[in-house]
Amino acid sequence: MHIVVCMKQVPRDNSVKINSDLSINADGIEKIINLFDEYAIEEGLAWNEKHSGKLTVLSMGSDEWVEQMRRALAMGATDSLLLKDASFAQLDTLAAAKVVAAAIKKLGDVDLVFCGRNSTDDESGAFAPALARALGWAQLTYVGKVLDVDPAGKKVTAERHLETVVETVTASLPAVVSVIKDINNPRYPSLLKIKKVAKIQPPVWTAADLGVSGLSAAATISSRVPPPPRPSGEIIDGPDAAAKVRKLVDKLLENQII
């Protein structure tokens, strides 16, 4: 079977700056695979090992993302594919999902797509549902356990871990599945494997290759500001721990916080 894992590169932390054109400046912050996507890769690898076939790591990004794509290859992905075009840079999440959908259609033989629950930078969690709808496929989001992938019967069964309930759902294949963090333990690629993939250049597909043009964002960012600073706090002093604790509880009661 052919599994695709959608991978986004993100900054390790969000101590980002805002450029004057409202784009995000993450210069100087280490770039990593979006944490949830590591779990998506691991899940794809596990089912790929069971059913044998291809696992393609697919990103809509820039050349800077290739290093993280190679990391996915070192983890065990068999193929990679980079979607890159100047016209992709300004897209919102729904339009981005349309581009990725066009690529998955062009691949032609994909049975299952794994995504992360959300990215840790833009954080919308809208990509996987938007991708599924653009493809006309089933979606299973917030999956904490994949119980079975049955390529012959064209079915996938999984647990969706929502805030207060766990749903067990069967979807027809092909499908898009987004995963949460405690679904598995992502493997750590060995140095040997990292070395082996160090020169791989993922094939690049452009807007022309995909036949997508005239995509426009339905949403535009009109302002971006840092959050208002928190009012400066107070350090609770006292001769000993017991005195400090009493003073803290006084403050909490006085301010009607408890």
């Binding site: 980002v16 840790t120 954080e123 971006r224 840092p226």
Partner: peptide, 10 residues
């Protein structure tokens, strides 16, 4: 977005 470090208006 960005862990609450950026407040966006759409």
């Amino acid at each position: 977005s960005h862990g609450g470090n950026v407040i966006n208006t759409y």
